[in-house]
Nucleic acid binder design. Structure first.
Lengths: 211, 211
DNA sequence: CCGGGGTGTTACCCCGGGTAACATCGTCGG
DNA sequence: CCGACGATGTTACCCGGGGTAACACCCCGG
């Protein structure tokens, strides 16, 4: 029997374990779930990273395709942005554990690691960059701006989405609005609040240094 | 001799090692750098997390204080935002390894882990939230918006700053401008590019061939 | 019958976090 | 002076996880 079908089975098992235990699931646990032992996993995937990569590749494709589609939707720009945001949030909402796997960079990878954006997210960032470059007239700075914004927007949605998933402070729709408003310069446009604090010490209920 | 001074020495050693090897440095390595062995580290810090926490606390205080100061600078809002962005970028530029330690969540922490924002960054996010709440008139949604934006902006700067540090595509000043422009709604305000691509065909970096 | 490519196993190595048990030094109190 | 305590430090070990070596089975085509 060709190797592919088995690979799929093993990936399914890995998926189940990670769904259950999160991205820190051990190779032993995954092997056990598949009803086998470690060396087989290593035969198929080389090392843990290979397994994770194969696993993320599967899920990434879906989310990435959805985002890409949303990015080229023929809508007003604001609506299109909202659509993209909603697509991402809906994706992470649907399967949180998978989402964690995708967004959480593998710890054990010292190869120029430490990147804030995991591979899957980097690809989303690239999509955004491409979309901005091809859709928005930004003058001479277009390349720099598109790249910086691609990363920036992705990081923004990552962090905000993470918080939203954890605390669920509002509906998805409202969250989409909040983020789109930020991107739309509402922070810049809003009026100043009557400055209650001169230059020093605000009355701070929580206390600045919690020891 | 009281315990504090030794603690400081050990933290200094840990600092040196991490400066050299990055956040993945082992406890053995840190102990060796300090000229001692592991159990002493554990006596002082409980576990690796305790060590890391103590270490980050030191560095966080500096960056956090700088950001906090920048957030309350008596400037035009745009200038203040730029000042905050510049403060952060300058901070991570000065000591990249420390920055990685601060921004990279500890992998082995299963306690509600997986958060996109490491503790140090979460504190920065809180500062931003507080600043927005107290300075900007956002109407009824103020709390939700301030919280979401605090996280979002932090994540944006994290991801974009990360990319900037790695690839150095431009000066710090220019990067600050790019991010401030994004926050100022330049993405929303810019004109559409003549849509050269109907539904198919990938983006063309040499310029859209408008037919 | 043989051989190769798939399946699987047990047993092991290495390394890193974490701990137990033991030895030493200096200072304070009787 | 002596003992006790609290710090210093040590060696040696446990555990668990990634990763590998060596061996065994099973089936199919030549």
């Amino acid at each position: 029997m060709s190797r592919e079908p088995r690979r799929e089975q093993l990936l399914n098992a890995a998926d189940r374990v990670i769904q259950r235990e999160g991205p820190t699931a051990s190779m032993n646990a995954i092997a056990a779930e598949a009803g086998i032992t470690k060396p087989i996993l290593y035969r198929h995937f080389g090392d843990r990273n290979g397994l994770i990569k194969a696993l993320t590749e599967r899920h990434t494709s879906g989310l990435l395709a959805a985002v890409r589609a949303a990015l080229t939707e023929p809508l007003e720009r604001r609506d299109r942005v909202e659509h993209v945001l909603d697509t991402y949030l809906a994706g992470i909402e649907a399967r949180p554990q998978v989402y964690r796997l995708l967004t959480h960079p593998e710890p054990g990878d010292p190869s120029g690691a430490g990147n804030a954006l995991a591979p899957a997210l980097r690809r989303i960032a690239e999509e955004i960059t491409r979309a901005v470059q091809s859709q928005v007239d930004l003058g001479a700075d277009r390349d720099l701006l598109a790249e910086a914004w691609g990363r920036g927007i992705t990081g923004m949605v990552l962090a905000a989405g993470d918080w939203w998933l954890e605390t669920r402070p509002c509906s998805r729709t409202r969250m989409v609005q909040a983020l789109a408003d930020l991107l739309w310069g509402r922070l810049a446009a809003a009026a100043d609040l009557p400055t209650a604090v001169p230059p020093v010490a605000p009355a701070d209920p929580t206390g600045p240094d919690a020891g």
